[in-house]
Every structure is written in C-alpha cells, then in structure tokens.
Amino acid sequence: MANRLPLLITLAGVAVLFLSILFVFALVLGAMFFGGIEFTGGHTDAAASLASISSLV
C-alpha cells in the first residue's frame, strides 16, 4: 500500500487541477452566453441609486 501512495496523491492532484480548469472554462462559457459576470458586487448599482437620491435633495 505504501508503494501506491505517491500514485494516489498524484491522481488526487491531477483531479483537483482538472476540476479547477473545468470550473474556469464553465465561467468563461457562462460569461460569453449569459451576458457576463459582474464582479463589482453591486457597487455600480449602489452608486447609481445614490446619485439619483442626491439629485432629488
């Protein structure tokens, strides 16, 4: 069993690397087909609503 340990560790590392690449690929495809991904956390929406409120005062 000790002889197989490096092989199992290598396979686990390859699986994690493959899944992370697949996740990034899915993010890119999602951004292409569904209008992009907003990473601002809504700051632009908050700034726009704050500007509209301040213009009323």
Rank of each mutant, 00 (worst) to 15 (best):
G35W: 09
V16R: 03
L19N: 07
F23A: 12
G13F: 10
F18I: 07
G35S: 03
I37V: 14
G41W: 15
I21C: 09
E38T: 04
F23V: 10
T10I: 12
L27Q: 13
V14Q: 02
G35I: 10
G36I: 05
F39Y: 09
G36F: 03
A12K: 10
G30T: 12
L11Q: 10
F39S: 00
S20Y: 08
L17D: 04
I9N: 04
I37L: 14
E38H: 04
G13V: 07
A15M: 14
G35C: 15
G41K: 01
S20A: 11
G36C: 07
G36D: 12
V16I: 15
M32H: 09
L27W: 04
A26T: 10
E38F: 04
L22F: 13
A31V: 07
L8N: 05
L29C: 13
L19C: 02
L11H: 01
F34I: 11
L22Y: 05
V24D: 06
G41Y: 02
V14C: 09
L29D: 08
L11V: 07
S20E: 12
S20P: 00
V24E: 06
A15W: 05
I9R: 08
V28G: 06
V16C: 06
L11R: 10
M32R: 15
V14D: 03
G13T: 05
V24F: 12
L19Q: 09
G30E: 13
L19F: 11
V24H: 04
F23I: 08
L29S: 12
V24S: 04
T40D: 14
I9D: 01
S20C: 05
E38G: 00
L7N: 03
A26H: 09
V28R: 10
V28N: 02
S20G: 03
I37R: 03
V16H: 00
L8P: 01
V24C: 05
F23P: 01
G36T: 07
L8Q: 07
L17A: 14
G41R: 01
L8M: 11
V24W: 13
T10L: 15
L11M: 13
L22N: 03
G41I: 07
I37P: 04
F23M: 07
G41F: 07
F33A: 11
F34C: 08
T40I: 01
A26W: 12
F34L: 15
E38P: 01
F25I: 14
F18N: 00
A15Q: 06
F18T: 10
A26P: 00
L22D: 12
M32S: 14
I37K: 02
G35H: 05
L17R: 00
L17H: 00
